[in-house]
Design a protein around this nucleic acid. Structure first.
Length: 280
DNA sequence: ATCCTATCCTGGCTGC
DNA sequence: TGCAGCCAGGATAGGA
């Protein structure tokens, strides 16, 4: 499932092919992909604009548009579970499950493929306003030990749902939350306000280390899902300590990794490394 | 404030 | 082998 490291990988890979290129037009095969205002409005917003920069915020790929050198809104791409972005030759036939495409100058096109149709590629006038509700970037300057300790104490939520909440901290998903909690030796059901200062510091360090290592390995790939735009799978899935490893030995202590459900999400943990809270 | 459930979707897996 | 039914899962809305 594309989370921060996968989205960062996608942004880095498509950036060289997109920055500076003008959008010549748009094709939409699944209208909901481009949002509420509809396919024609979407095409009007992007056609003729130049892609100035390609960035990432949380799990969004952000394409900043310009017209005549002046800002002209942004394209926000959210891959959700199965979305993929590829730069393809403009002559390429529509791929299976291709939901939208931007034709670019230079005989290229940006193709958005999404089996489950949950992903979105929408135009917004102001990215800061559109994403104002998001919490800080886990690898950004706002995310400090002090900020995390305070944030945990101010809320009274189970750690896992809290870390998945994009308005609290933006970019983590099911995989990296499980990995970071295991590395920090914290139980996903632990109540946030009861996390002691040393544990909060551990959690901060392990969130950052997990994400940095995953970006280094170009994210995680499995099944027929996420691939880098070049078709290469990332390799971080081989580093998983608990995610998807139920029934196997914990890499830290040898106990058996178990899978439970927390907040409707499959959750992987080692009961020996991650001690259960007293009140669960 | 927090939690719970349903919704969006489809391919792949399970079990009969 | 065939097929119905369930599951995964990010984000969000609405109800408890």
């Amino acid at each position: 499932m594309p989370e921060l490291p996968e989205v960062e990988t996608v942004a880095r890979l498509v950036r060289p092919d997109l920055e500076g290129r003008r959008v010549r037009g748009a094709h939409v095969w699944w209208p909901r992909t481009v949002g509420e205002s509809g396919e024609e409005a979407f095409a009007r917003r992007v056609t003729g604009a130049r892609i100035a920069t390609v960035g990432r915020r949380a799990k969004y790929v952000v394409l900043a548009l310009e017209r005549g050198g002046r800002p002209a809104g942004e394209l926000l791409v959210h891959l959700r579970m199965t979305g993929r972005l590829h730069v393809v030759p403009s002559t390429a036939e529509p791929a299976p499950y291709e939901r939208a495409r931007l034709d670019l100058e230079g005989r290229r096109a940006l193709s958005f493929v999404d089996v489950r149709k949950f992903g979105r590629m929408t135009w917004v006038a102001d990215v800061r306003e559109a994403l104002a509700e998001l919490g800080p970037e886990p690898l950004g300057p706002e995310f400090t030990v002090a900020w995390l300790r305070r944030g945990l104490r101010e809320r009274r939520r189970q750690l896992k749902p809290l870390l998945l909440d994009q308005t609290f901290l933006a970019g983590l998903g099911n995989i990296y939350v499980d990995e970071a909690l295991h590395r920090a030796r914290l139980h996903p059901l632990q109540s946030s306000e009861r996390v002691a200062a040393p544990a909060a510091a551990r959690l901060h360090a392990e969130i950052q280390a997990t994400l940095r290592e995953a970006i280094e390995r170009e994210g995680s790939s499995f099944d027929t899902f996420y691939r880098t735009p070049e078709g290469q799978p990332g390799s971080y899935q081989h580093q998983f300590r608990v995610y998807g490893r139920q029934g196997q030995a914990c890499k830290a202590c040898g106990a058996t990794v178990v899978k439970i459900v927390v907040g409707q999400r499959g959750t992987h943990l080692c009961r020996r490394c991650q001690r259960a809270p007293r009140r669960a």
